[in-house]
């Protein structure tokens, strides 16, 4: 028996959306492992978690909420201990995290506690000869590394937006287990939230990125309007040129020295498409480029391009998207 454990995330008592992808990836692994392997979804929280009852629909056979008054927010050491204990007790064949800010922090702690290797930020998982095979982008996305993880459990974290959630008509069993233990020595005091409704570029299903073609920082309102037209599903990204110029925060930078994004739709506006920018977004499903220079390298990776002045094209696009959604 080699069941798969999917480690999920909640914030303020609500399941984070990336959790659906983690369950989907775990389901895929469980099916590939065969032998009727189950997916156990695990969420740590202070109490009940909104959205946990939906997880059966994404492939979880069992959803376990581990509650502890110290687990309301992320508690790195307390979480790592509780998860490692759970893995040891459950004899899992694989453990799946999200390669989110929290997942990338938590997975190495759990792996070290279990004395097991870890493949972070994987874009594909499969099984061959009973062993888990993972593919990860390396060298800033300039190559893909395929690895075999010997023994169990295989521990992986999944790059956001790559494992498209698959719905299935099934309800998982719900369980709540109170666990003992402290938060640990490292204490998250608060999350200074970005303005409400701001999606992170690394997790948004749609990213609208702007570059030096925007001319000045105030003009980014043109892109914010386009993002808003997608009804809360889009984030605004930026090239390094405009981040270095102080027009946009570093958190929004896409590329080799910024974030790696794989949204369903990436719209590059006034971005030339330098190799270091492409490193961060070339795995997007669909790329649209809007640039006045028809020779701009961004058109070489774009699925669809419009050659033209962004200040004319983008407002028209915003209008059209609004119509679709209105």
């Amino acid at each position: 028996m080699s069941n798969v454990l999917a480690v999920l995330e909640q914030r303020d008592g609500t399941l984070r959306k990336v959790s659906h992808e983690v369950v989907t990836g775990a389901r895929r692994l469980a099916d590939a492992l065969g032998g009727g392997a189950n997916v156990d979804a695990l969420v740590l929280a202070g109490g009940s978690v909104r959205g946990a009852d939906q997880l059966g629909g994404f492939g979880a056979d069992r959803v376990v909420t581990l509650t502890n008054p110290a687990f309301g927010g992320y508690a790195p050491e307390g979480y790592a201990r509780a998860i490692a204990d759970r893995v040891k007790a459950g004899g899992y064949g694989a453990v799946v995290f999200a390669a989110s800010a929290t997942g990338k922090d938590l997975a190495p702690r759990v792996a070290a506690r279990l004395d097991r290797p870890l493949a972070q930020d994987v874009t594909d998982v499969s099984v061959a000869g009973g062993a888990v095979i993972a593919i990860r982008p390396v060298y800033a996305g300039k190559a893909l590394l395929k690895v075999r993880i010997a023994g169990s459990p295989a521990i992986v974290s999944l790059r956001p937006n790559v494992f498209t959630p698959v719905q299935r008509p099934k309800a998982g069993i719900q369980e709540t287990v109170a666990v003992a233990g402290t938060a640990g020595r490292v204490v998250v005091k608060q999350i200074k939230a970005a303005p409400a409704g701001t999606l992170d570029v690394a997790e948004a299903p749609i990213v609208v990125s702007g570059g030096r073609g925007l001319k000045e920082p105030a003009n980014f309102k043109v892109l914010e309007a386009l993002a808003a037209a997608f009804g809360g599903r889009a984030a605004v990204g930026a090239s390094r040129a405009v981040v270095d110029a102080g027009w946009r925060p570093h958190a929004d930078q896409v590329g080799q020295t910024g974030k790696t994004v794989s949204p369903t739709l990436y719209i590059a506006v006034g971005v030339s498409g330098a190799i270091q920018h492409l490193a961060g977004m070339r795995t997007s499903k669909i790329i649209v480029a809007i640039n006045k220079d028809k020779e701009a390298p961004i058109f070489k990776v774009a699925d669809y391009g419009i050659v033209g002045d962004l200040f004319e094209v983008v407002p028209k696009l915003t209008e059209a998207i609004k119509k679709l959604h209105g």
Binding site: A119, V138, K146, V147, G305
Partner: peptide, 22 residues
């Protein structure tokens, strides 16, 4: 316990189409 099976270039993206101008 991690064995490297392969290092490959990322799949080339097909250059798409220019939909039009303006």
């Amino acid at each position: 316990a991690i064995e490297i099976l392969a290092l490959t270039p990322p799949p080339e993206r097909q250059a798409g189409k220019i939909v039009g101008e303006g």
